[in-house]
Design a binder for these strands. Structure first.
Lengths: 211, 211
DNA sequence: TGTACATCAGTGAACGCGCGTTCACTGATGTAC
DNA sequence: TGTACATCAGTGAACGCGCGTTCACTGATGTAC
């Protein structure tokens, strides 16, 4: 179909939007956000620096798009670990927690961006804002269920939510930043530990800890 | 004593090292690490950009010095909350945890720097490395005591340490980044919640939860 | 007590760099007739 | 089916900027004699 264009193989890139995001994620992975530049991204993809502005309003918008993808992925991963069969609130919370940490470990660049300081401006991007709220709601709703079903101790919903979120967030961050578990950085070993940690949390939340 | 110098009040600044660190902390607080520049720091302090290099090898060394201060402060704050009277391992752990979160809330710029991505290179700075290990050891040793005294459940030390650290770190980060507790950002309210969260953790760690 | 001199803590000009973003533009594409 | 034309997705040169760091330097300080 593109028989005319033999001088330049692809004047129209075709999927520059996605290609830029892909390149950005890779660079975030390798060098961190501090060294991420639009010009480098454009070069990675084989396009002039200006082309980026066809697809993103500015650098910040590109980052917001990636963070948004991240929250969508996070929610998906929690759902994946939650599964479809009905289960009690405690199991659900543990599964969600594992899904959360699992996502962070396997997508550190996304995760760091999602919770980085610059994402304080997240209110500026409706999609991002909604995606992050969806992730958060999943955690909170499950805890609410545990309270309603009188499975959990009689503590304020906010406190329990904060506890659970702090735990998974802390675990995710410390793991990603390499502060924890030095030699065996295999995700299997990490997930085994995460499992036990979730267990401790569950023990703390339960009305009658007899698991 | 400086009667000769009337043209330039202070050619020799006298405490440029500390002044630079102070300016850096203030700028970190306001604009974050991404916008921190040595030139701006020098200007803040009223000194030429080159003067900085009399006191720090380079930009990275300045940041490392601040992070080091941070860990020392963190350790001090945990000791402050721990107090001097002997107490059981559980109380000790709770107090340390409160001291930890309290420090992070009151020194967000330090805290973010201490655990930011760029501090992966912390091994390059012996002082920083040691200061961070000292902080970490305080947490771990207290948990070890709880296990030795058969106060805590029979779980691996690593798992318990990871749980506790994840919890306080997560709480600190989420609070600092404004993800938690929207309107009442007063530290009193935060510390009250932190207290209850610590309680939940304690409940989870205890051998026989009957507090 | 006065002086010579080494050392210390700054200066100021300059470097080369990469950045985000703008502008006017052009080649490719798709569609109405 | 062929053509005119609007639209789209790129280009390439240029902008102004602030950065970290270097260099050769100089004014201030403290100390030995």
């Amino acid at each position: 179909m593109k028989k005319e264009s033999f001088v330049k193989e692809h004047y129209h890139h075709g999927s520059l939007h996605d290609a830029l995001i892909g390149a950005a994620v890779q660079r975030l992975q390798q060098d961190g956000i501090a060294k991420l530049s639009l010009r480098a991204l454009a070069a990675d993809v084989g396009v002039s620096p200006t082309a980026v502005y066809r697809h993103f309003e500015d650098k910040s918008a590109l980052l917001a798009a990636i963070a948004c993808d991240g929250f969508v992925g996070l929610t998906q991963n929690m759902h994946k670990y939650l599964g479809h069969e009905p289960c009690d609130a405690l199991s659900a919370l543990k599964r969600i927690g594992i899904g959360y940490v699992d996502y962070a470990i396997h997508h550190p660049a996304h995760y760091r961006l999602m919770f980085g300081q610059r994402m304080v401006e997240r209110a500026r991007y409706p999609d991002l804002y909604q995606a992050s709220n969806t992730s958060f709601a999943m955690l909170r709703d499950t805890i609410k269920r545990g309270i309603d079903e009188q499975m959990f101790r009689d503590l304020p919903l906010d406190v329990m939510t904060m506890t659970a979120w702090s735990l998974v967030h802390g675990m995710a961050m410390l793991t990603i930043d390499g502060c924890l578990v030095r030699p065996p950085n295999q995700s299997d070993a990490l997930m085994a530990i995460a499992n036990q940690v979730q267990d401790t949390l569950a023990h703390g939340l339960l009305r009658s800890p007899s698991l």
